[in-house]
Nucleic acid binder design. Structure first.
Length: 479
RNA sequence: GCCGAGGUGGCAGAAUGGUUAAUGCGACGGACUGCAGAUCCGUUUCCUGGGGGUUCGAUUCCCUCCCUCGGCUCCA
């Protein structure tokens, strides 16, 4: 297992990862509340934690990654009411839409997506434990957690409970003993989904679902808990209070990891302002790898300024440049196979490829500095650029060796994934014939015919480019 | 108001107690080309929010102020 340093929000310092049961690592990430379409901010967090899981796996850890789905809350119920739809079905619909987008983004490290409502028995058991131990009290059909009973409340966020502004966004509620107390079991309202409980029919509060799930799956203590920076208070603070009070064990998690948010330059991205940028739109327009590149091109803890008209086009240009040598290599290997004979590349170049992979691992293992790793990859792209015109003479072994840093990026960062509609498939039969016909037309000076062939291919999504070595092509879709 | 995260070149965004502060985008010039596109080469030596302090030396550490973003019971 490689030595991994990561920033822990609780101690506000970089610490070396020491799993409770090496090589196992339990990773829990707060997932979506799927009441609407996902936006580009959401995906930043989940792409990052996908990299965490991928990298740890590469380095010899055995990661169990869980991402909960809050499939019932006030917003979901409100939205379902507007649409006259069942709340749980609405949540499931949006969750599946997210899952599909996540798949396109190459997020595939999550082992389990538990739905909150599948854990009602665990939630009720935990509430009972909290009531028995005196940390929670029933009131008017609901059950509340009393933060005054948990002195460490505020340790993660630095919030002092007395400083909270009562009445700012919290309705003053006479059911609570103190304004900071939060609901863990919410009394049923007619027409909403509800479950029976010792305190009357109701549904789970937000914070308790996560601890009920992790207590079940990981036990009272586990390794990593992640989420967006905006979840620290009250959500994660409350998780600690709920779990540690219920089990008597501490700490609930050994490392708290929080991802920086994506800001819409100058404006706050929020649904109420109507300025969200749909994730689906972004992926459709720029492709999932460009999005992934964009997110990983900044350190995960930094805020990221999303400039509406510039960020994604810029990422597209940069990514296209980054992958160029890799694409050229893949093109040759796709055509000739890995056994292809040819010259061995310069030994010092092959050696640098190997060294670079080690440097990439070291860099990423230092608090997941994907930005620095990408800078190193750009260096490799620059270096290979000098050799581009010699690629066709290199052996399959040499080309595979030169490809290794990019393979590393594919494995850990999830970049460099090629679509299945690339050069393989039926086009591989047809296009070379058309290119040859066009070459003959150009040779005899019939440029009208040459352009016609190019245009026709372009119309069906096959794009040609002429360079010194001849004509290259790819399939990137119509228009 | 309180808590937290940040302020680096035209833009995005790394890093570091010490020679020219990454990387990318953009821009400009050139090469190549039937055209288009792509690519290649070169240039973009004056960039670390303001003010103090510590130090031989700070962008980096400390204090303070200003600004931005997030949270303060819906938020990735």
């Amino acid at each position: 297992m490689r030595r991994v340093a990561l920033y822990d929000s609780m101690t506000r310092s970089v610490r070396v990862l020491a799993p409770i049961q090496p090589p196992r690592v339990g990773l829990f990430v707060c997932g979506l509340t799927p009441y609407d379409e996902a936006h580009i901010g959401h995906a930043r967090t989940f792409v990052f934690f996908d990299v965490v899981a991928r990298a740890l796996t590469r380095w010899g850890y055995r990661v169990f990654s869980v991402q909960n789905v809050t499939n019932l809350d006030d917003k979901i119920i409100a939205r379902a009411g507007e649409l006259d739809e069942d709340p749980l079905l609405l949540a499931e619909r949006h969750f599946l839409a997210w899952l599909f987008l996540a798949g396109r983004l190459g997020i595939r490290s999550v082992n389990y997506y538990p739905r909150a409502t599948d854990y009602v028995p665990e939630i009720l058991a935990q509430i009972q434990a909290l009531v028995d131990r005196g940390y929670a009290y029933p009131s008017q059909g609901s059950v509340y957690y009393e933060i005054a009973k948990f002195p460490r409340y505020g340790a993660l966020s630095g919030q002092r409970t007395e400083a909270l502004r009562p009445g700012a966004r919290v309705e003053v509620d006479d059911a609570k003993r103190a304004p900071g107390d939060f609901v863990i079991w919410k009394a049923a309202t007619p027409g909403e989904p509800s479950w029976e409980s010792p305190w009357g029919p109701g549904r789970p509060g937000w914070h308790i679902e996560d601890t009920a799930i992790t207590l079940r799956l990981f036990g009272p203590r586990y390794d990593l808990h992640g989420g967006g920076l905006d979840l620290i208070f009250p959500h994660h603070e409350s998780e600690i209070a709920l779990a540690e009070a219920a089990t008597g064990e501490s700490p609930l998690v050994n490392y708290w990891m929080h991802g920086g948010l994506l800001n819409l330059a100058g404006e706050k991205m929020s649904k109420s302002l109507g300025n969200v940028y749909s994730l689906r739109t972004a992926i459709d327009e720029f492709g999932p790898m460009v999005l992934r590149f964009y997110y990983l091109n900044a350190h995960y803890r930094s805020p990221l300024e999303f400039v509406r008209a510039e960020s994604l086009p810029e990422a597209r240009e940069a990514y296209a440049r980054l992958v160029l040598p890799s694409d050229r290599i893949a093109e040759i290997l796709d055509r000739d196979g890995a056994e292809r004979p040819g010259a061995e590349g310069p030994p010092e170049l092959l050696e640098r490829a190997e060294d670079l992979v080690e440097r990439l691992d070291t860099t990423l293992a230092d608090d997941f500095n994907s930005r620095e790793a990408i800078a190193l990859l750009f260096g490799w792209t620059r270096e290979l650029t000098e050799h581009l015109d010699r690629f066709p003479s290199y052996s399959g072994d040499t080309l595979a060796a030169l490809q290794e840093p990019y393979d590393w990026a594919s494995e850990t960062l999830g970049l460099f994934e090629r679509s299945s509609t690339g050069r393989a498939g039926a086009w591989a039969q047809v296009v070379p014939i058309a290119i040859a016909a066009r070459a003959r037309a150009r040779a005899r000076g019939d440029f009208a015919e040459a352009d016609r062939i190019r245009d026709e291919l372009s119309a069906v999504g096959v794009h040609l480019e002429d360079d010194a070595a001849g004509t290259r092509w790819d399939f990137s879709g119509p228009k």
